[in-house]
Every structure is written in structure tokens, then in C-alpha cells.
Design a protein around this nucleic acid. Sequence first.
DNA 1: GTCTATAGTTAGATAGAC
DNA 2: GTCTATCTAACTATAGAC
Lengths: 203, 203
Amino acid sequence: MRASGQTAKSRITKAERTRARLIEVATRLFQEHGSDEVTVRRIAAAAKIEAGSIYYHFASRDEIMRAVLEGGVGGAKTEVLKAIAEVAGASPLDRLRAALGAHLKYTLHHHFSSRLKAIRRLPKRLRDHHMKQEREYAAIFADLLAEAQAKGLLRPGFDLSVVRMLAMGALTWAAEWYDPAGTMAPADITDELMKLLTEGIVK
Amino acid sequence: MRASGQTAKSRITKAERTRARLIEVATRLFQEHGSDEVTVRRIAAAAKIEAGSIYYHFASRDEIMRAVLEGGVGGAKTEVLKAIAEVAGASPLDRLRAALGAHLKYTLHHHFSSRLKAIRRLPKRLRDHHMKQEREYAAIFADLLAEAQAKGLLRPGFDLSVVRMLAMGALTWAAEWYDPAGTMAPADITDELMKLLTEGIVK
DNA sequence: GTCTATAGTTAGATAGAC
DNA sequence: GTCTATCTAACTATAGAC
């Protein structure tokens, strides 16, 4: 569908497309087999290029890993904010449901939990950057809980910071047991968690 | 404190002690740095022996990994059953609290979540064995929930299997954010989860 | 941009002395 | 049982042709 002879006009260069494809397959391979088993050669093979060619796009294997992690939190944030915006007028708790639903979906589809774990094992300099991203991400959920509390929707006596981490953790870990072939949709799991959560903490 | 000249009488051989030490340091290293970064040489160094000597105790690096995973679920099961036994007469929900508390403690102290993740990425033949162990472990918690339900302690309408996985997942993931230097004890986190859980699912 | 070929390094594993 | 020395294989990364 693209015009032939097109050269300087392309918005997205060939290099950018190849780079994106490399990050994509690397992300999948890291999740499926663990960062251990994934060699540069394997990433190259999965992306249908030769191993040496990778180094035109990345300076090192670590750079690939870094790019994989970079995509993670930013992408999740975008999705979650979008989901919240779609129910903009709703109560904080309904927006929280939307946010948690998006978090779960992103986690399941983008191997998010593996990345979150990997971030913590990064060398300090790299880790700090990602941890900052992660705190911003967590703040989205914290803000929704705080708003619900401010509106008097919550029972007193809960540590909302712990509640947030437990709730997000419950869904993050779902990537380890969720079976796409089963009868439950991701939304069903979010609903179950919200039922548990609201009937527990909501007045 | 041991008698000198003792040879054939030792119940625990030198080899067994060395092997146990290797598993211990390997477990710690795998958790702290990720299985990636941990070489046989590094395990040997941490255990204060030379790399070659490892192969007197293990046939391969994979065998070490396997031993590390082997210890995981079995040890957790023992601890959880012990915790339940300590409150033997109590209601199913109080026993559930004890079980979840032991699960969290074991997770925090023995790098359990890393092992659970690693198990899923194992070659099929090894994985099956560990997954069976894991199902037996999960059954402990499932039974307690079922007993609570049978006694009419729970609200209707919950999928207890999902509730169990969410609750256990929330605690399993806590290993990723729990700060031992903070003000919260593991028991506080368990209490917070139980409050959330019971005020939600208990009639 | 991607290929082929290969340099340089390090990993897992073995052999034999002690 | 553990050490030292070493083999082999595999990996990351580079160089130069196209």
C-alpha cells in the first residue's frame, strides 16, 4: 500500500522498523524462556536477520535488554490512562476498576511482570530511571484510592499504600497462572478482584 | 564440639554438608542477581571452593538449578502446615491467616517467587514434577477456603479458585516491594490482606 | 542495512594429581 | 573431596564486503 520509489519521504525508516521488530521479539523471548536462555543469535533468528546485523541497531545485548524494559512501564501507563479517560465521569472506584483492568491486560499481553522483576536486578544507574517511571505508574492507582477515600467511599483503618500494592500485585502475578485457553476473560478476573476489594474496603 | 578422629560415625557426611552449602548459596545468588548472571564459578566462589569441585556434587549447572527449585515448594509446604498446626483448633479463616502468613514469610526469606517463576520456564519433564508439588501446595489453601465455605462463613458468588490465586499472588508479589527496613512486619501485611479478604468475602 | 566471517572471551565441564 | 589445569563449545561483538 506504499508508493513505490518512496525514499526520503518515509516517516518511519527501515532502521526504525527493524529496531522495533527486534525489541518486540526480544521481549517475547525474554518472557517465554527467561533472559538466561535468550542469546543475541536467537533474537536475530526470531527477527529473521543475522546475528551480526543486530549491532547496527544496538551497541550491545544490554542495550537490547534496556530497550525492552524501557518500553514496559511507559506503555502500561499509556494504556491505563486511556482506560481511565474512557470512563472519565465515573466514580473513583469505577475508574480504579478500569485502571486495574488495563493493568492486568497489559501485564498479560506484554510480559510486564518479567520486566518489573528485571528492573530490580538492573545495575543501579539504569535501575533508578526505571524505578522513577514505576513510581509514577503506581501514583495513578494511589491517586484513585486517595480520591475514593476523600469522597468518603472507603472504610477507615486501611493502609491504602499496602492495599494498592497487594491489589496490583495480585493482578501482576496473574500472568503466572492465567490460562488464555480457560473460560475466564481478563475482565472477569479484574471484576473478581474489585468485588473482593470493594466489599472489603468500601463502606 | 565434635569428637576427634570421628570418621565412619558421622550421620551427615562432608559431601552432604558441602552439597547443602552449595544449594544454599546458589539459591541466594539466583535470587539476588537473576539466574542469568550466576555462573558455576560464582557459586563455587561464594561457597569457598573451586569451580571444578562443584562437579563432584552435581553433574551439571542444571542439576544445581534443579536442586534449588526442589527445595522450594517442599520447604514452603512444611512451614505452612506447621503454622496451621499451631492454630489447630481455630476457625478455617484463622487457619487461613496462619497459612498465608507462613506463605509470605517463606516467600520473603527463601526467594520463593523467583523459584515459582523459574519452574514455569523449565523443560517440560522437570516442570511437571514441580508443578505437581505446586498443586499440592495450592490445595492446602484451597481446602481452607472450601472448609470456610462449607461452614457458611463466606459470601456467595465468589470463585474461590480465583480468590485463592489472587490472595496468594498478592503475597507472592510482595517479595518484589517489601522493604525489611520499613516499619511493617510481614505479619502486618498478612493482616492487611486478611482484613481486605474477610471483610470482603465473609458474611 | 544486512551479510559473512571471525576475533576474543567466557562459560560449562572433564582429567588427573593429591 | 578438593584442587589445578585445560578442553570444547557457545556467546558477544567487530570488520569489511556488498
